[in-house]
Write a protein that binds this DNA or RNA. Structure first.
Lengths: 188, 188
DNA sequence: CCGTTTGCCTATAGATCGTAGGAAACTGCA
DNA sequence: TGCAGTTTCCTACGATCTATAGGCAAACGG
C-alpha cells in the first residue's frame, strides 16, 4: 500500500481547491479523502475534525487574500489605492469563490486574533489614512468600506445582479468612484 | 399514537425558529422532527428534502423582510426613507439572524423569480427614485445600496465589529448619512 | 538487517438523509 | 353507529458521513 503523502498543508490546499470547485460547504473529510484516493479515517491523523479542516482553509484564504490586497495597494495612494484595494477583494472572490467563502468562516476569537484577518483590518485603516478622517469617523469608514466591498462581492457571487443587463464592472467602477468622492468630501 | 399535526407551514415556521436559535445551517429534517417529537421520516410527507425545507424558510424570511421594509418606507421619502429602509434590514437581521441568513439562501432562478426577492428589488428602486438618478446610474446605486446594507449587517452579525470600542449604531448612522449625501451630490 | 516510528488500513459506533411499506387515527357517508 | 377510504405517523432499511480504536506494512535510523 503506497503512501499518499498526506500532510495538514496538502489536505488544506486540496480542501481549498475543492471549495473553489464545489463550494465551501461541500468541503468535508470524506470529500477530501476521495481526492487523495484514501480512506476518510486516514485524514484524522492530520486534521482533528471537519471543523478543523475548514478552519485551516479559512486561515489559508485570509492569508492569500491579505497578500493580494497588500500587493495591490503597495505604492498607491488615495483614489487609486481605493480602487486597487476593492479590486483585490473582488478579483479574489471571482477567481476563488470557495476560498472567499472560507475567508468568511466564523472563527473563534483566539484563532481570529492570530489570523491574517488582523492584517485586513490594518490595511483598511492604512488605506483610509489617505482621506484624513479623525476618530471615530475613521472607524465608521472602515466598517462602511468593509461592508460595502464584502456585500457587493457577495451579491454579485450569489447571482443577484443577473436580472439586469447593466455590466457589473460598470456598477463596481461607479461605486468605487462614489465612495472616493464621499470620503473626500464628507468630513463630518 | 396521537398526531402531531404536521403541515409544511408549521414545519417551515419551526425551522425558522430553530434557525434563529441555532443558526440556519443547523436546520435539518432531523432537528425539526425533534422539535415536534416525531420521527424524521414523518416529515418527508410534508417537505421533499432538507433543501426543500430550507427553501421554504428562505421564502418565508424574504416575505417577512419585504413586509417590514415596505412598512418602514411607507409615507417617507428621501433621507428619512433611506434611513428607515436600512434600519428595517438591520433590525430584522439582529432580531432574526437565522432567518436573515435564510433570506440569503441560494434559490434556483425560477423560485427566486417567484419570491419576495422581486419586491426587495422593486422597493430599492422605489427608494432611489427620491434621488433622481438616470439609468444606468440607478442600477449602479441599487447594487451599491444592496451591497452596503447586506455587507454591513453581515459583518456586524459575524462579530467583525467587536474589536473596536466604537458603537456600531454610530457607525451605522454615519454610513447612512454618508450614503444620503453621496446619492444627493454624486449625479455623474 | 532489524527495530522503531509513521502512515494508512479495517472495523466499528453513532448520526444523518431519504425511501418503502405498514398500522393507527381521523373522515365522511350510509 | 358502523365501516370504507384516506391521511398521518410509524418501523425498517441502505447509503453517506463523522470520529475513534487498533492492526499491519512501509519507511527510516542505527
Amino acid at each position: 500500500m503506497a503512501r499518499a503523502g498526506l500532510t495538514p498543508e496538502r489536505l488544506t490546499r486540496a480542501g481549498a481547491e475543492l471549495a473553489d470547485e464545489a463550494g465551501f460547504e461541500q468541503v468535508t473529510v470524506s470529500a477530501v479523502a476521495r481526492r487523495f484516493d484514501v480512506k476518510a479515517a486516514s485524514l484524522y491523523a492530520h486534521v482533528k475534525s471537519t471543523e478543523d479542516l475548514r478552519t485551516r482553509i479559512a486561515l489559508l484564504a485570509l492569508e492569500e487574500l491579505a497578500d493580494r490586497v497588500a500587493d495591490s495597494i503597495a505604492g498607491r495612494a488615495g483614489r487609486e489605492a481605493l480602487a486597487a484595494f476593492a479590486a483585490a477583494y473582488r478579483d479574489y472572490a471571482r477567481a476563488h469563490p470557495g476560498r472567499y467563502a472560507a475567508a468568511r468562516y466564523r472563527l473563534d476569537p483566539a484563532t481570529a486574533a492570530a489570523s491574517a484577518g488582523v492584517r485586513h483590518a490594518q490595511m483598511t485603516r492604512a488605506l483610509l489614512r489617505g482621506y484624513d478622517l479623525a476618530e471615530p469617523e475613521q472607524t465608521h469608514a472602515v466598517r462602511m468600506l468593509g461592508g460595502l466591498v464584502h456585500g457587493f462581492v457577495e451579491l454579485e457571487a450569489a447571482g443577484g445582479f443577473a436580472h439586469t443587463a447593466v455590466d457589473p464592472q460598470a456598477s463596481w467602477d461607479w461605486t468605487v468612484d462614489a465612495l472616493d468622492a464621499m470620503l473626500r468630501t464628507h468630513l463630518s
